[in-house]
Every structure is written in C-alpha cells, then in structure tokens.
Design a binder for these strands. Structure first.
Length: 267
DNA sequence: GCTAAATGTTGAT
DNA sequence: TCAACCTTTAGCT
C-alpha cells in the first residue's frame, strides 16, 4: 500500500480522532515496550506526514516516527478495539477510537533534532503545500544518474514510490534511462504538476489510479479492476495507448516498467 | 497449504 | 550489489 498518498491519508484521517487527546499507548512486542511505556498517557499535539514518514508529535517534545516500509499497516476504528493478535507493534487508544500499527520498517521515538535530521534529507513532497519543486529540478538537472533512479530517490522527491515513478515517467513520455541532465524544465514542470494531481487523487481514493478515463475500458463511473495503471506490473502486456509490449527490468534493485514506444530513447 | 513477490529502506560487502 | 527486516496476498499446488 504505502506510497506517500497512503501516509498523508492516514495523517488526515487520524487527526480528528487522536490529536489533542491523551492517549493510551501499548504494545505486545518486547522491542517497543519501553517506547509504549514512555508515550502512554501523553497528549498528542499533532500528526504530520512528510513523504513516506509519519510523525506523531507528543507533548514534551517526543516524536513517534513511523515508516511503514514495504509491509507496514495501520488499522483503526471505534472502540472497543479487537483482541490484539499477531505482531502488534503499537496500539493507541482514546475513549472512542483505537489504532493498530503492524510491521513498520521504522517505529522510533525521536527528539526534535532527530526529527529535523530526517526532514533535512527529504526532497520536496508533492502533497505538501510548502514544497519547493525547484529543489527537485536542481538536483535532477545536475545529475548524470538515470531519471528512473532520480524519480525514486526520496531526497529528490519525497513520497513517490515505484508505482508513481513508473506511471509519471510514462505519462510524460520520459525515457527512464536518460540522465537527469537531459530533463527539460518544461517537461519537469508538467510532470511535477501532474504528480501532485495524481497523488492528491490517491489520497482521496485511498489507492493509486494513474490512467485517464479515455485509456480505460468502459466501466460505470468506477475504475475497473486491473485498469488503474499504464505500465506498472504490466510486463508483456500491450501499451494502453500504442499497443507496444510493456517492458520491465531491475533498476537499483527495484522493478522499472516502461513502454519503449511512448518513452523512446533519444540517443 | 506453500511459495514468491510486493507500493521500502538500511547497512554490510 | 546484496541481504535483512517485517507482513500480507496472489498464485500456485
């Protein structure tokens, strides 16, 4: 699930339930026992999302930092909370609501300066109003690394993941193997704006859909199963626009998907 | 029921 | 470049 849209959606949904409340915090995992004890009974001042990072800002300058990684999940609901089963890392509760966190890559207590250090290594986040896309373009334009890699790098663009990476490059006809130095300003600007739109739609829908209606099979208002993406996870299938066979290969340990005709190499 | 893969990152080699 | 980490699910049998 978790690209940036998931994280921002969690923050948005959790705020009205938990911010301003004094929380009961517990765990059934030894590794977070100390953390839970330290947080238990504290008031939560804010919940913030930056890229794929979630920060729970507790009183007295204690931040709970959560990164879902590949497997992390959050469930929440109205009390009573279900019987805890499996590896439940954190449960937070108010009188009315509960929230369970499982399988996160990161779940740590941080000081303000430790939190700032994490923020300092993140690029602009398309989902944040205060983001500065110029920073991303400056990084890309002076790098000879491939655009495929740059568009997954959290220090270049925070919150983008493998699906949005593949899909945004496709939507703008960008050759994923071209170096950062080759990306024209106008192409970047269009891709950035588009990425913001797609990710905001992802926050609203709770899932990623990058295909335009005209490129999807007809369905009554809904996005039909399996028609959400242009190239992601479509290796060997026909491109939705030109019919060319969608390709995939491993780039820096992650599978990159692209259409060789819509995203041609200029070299 | 089992295996592999997955929308991610870190740290060692 | 690769393994490790943590969990769920899809696709087999």
């Amino acid at each position: 699930m978790p690209e940036g849209h998931t994280i921002h959606r969690l923050a948005r949904d959790q705020r009205p339930l938990f911010v301003g409340e004094r929380l009961r915090v517990s765990t059934i995992m030894e590794r977070f026992a100390d953390g839970a004890a330290l947080l238990d009974g504290r008031r939560l001042a804010a919940i913030d999302a930056y890229g794929k990072h979630l920060f729970y800002d507790f009183e007295d300058d204690v931040f709970l930092h959560v990164h879902l990684g590949l497997y992390g999940r959050v469930r929440s609901g109205h009390e009573p909370a279900p019987e805890p089963v499996g590896a439940l890392r954190v449960r937070m509760e108010t009188k009315a609501s509960w929230l369970d966190l499982r399988g996160p890559a990161a779940c740590d207590l941080l000081s303000p300066s430790e939190r700032d250090a994490i923020l300092a290594r993140l690029g602009p986040d398309p989902l944040r109003a205060d983001s500065e896309p110029e920073r991303a373009y400056a990084r890309i334009r002076k790098s000879r690394v491939s655009l495929a890699q740059l568009f997954m790098d959290q220090s270049v663009i925070a919150g983008i993941g493998n699906i949005y990476r593949a899909e945004i490059l496709y939507r703008h006809g960008i050759d994923p193997f071209a170096p950062g130095t080759s990306l024209e300003r106008a192409t970047f600007d269009a891709a950035w704006t588009d990425l913001g739109k797609l990710m905001r739609a992802g926050v609203r829908a709770g899932r990623i859909v990058t295909t335009d209606p005209a490129d999807r099979p007809k369905a009554n208002g809904r996005v039909a199963r399996g028609s959400s993406f242009y190239v992601y996870h479509r290796t060997g299938e026909g491109c939705r626009r030109c019919g060319a066979i969608v390709q995939s290969t491993l780039v820096a340990g992650r599978t990159l998907y692209w259409c060789p005709r819509e995203q041609p190499s200029k070299a």
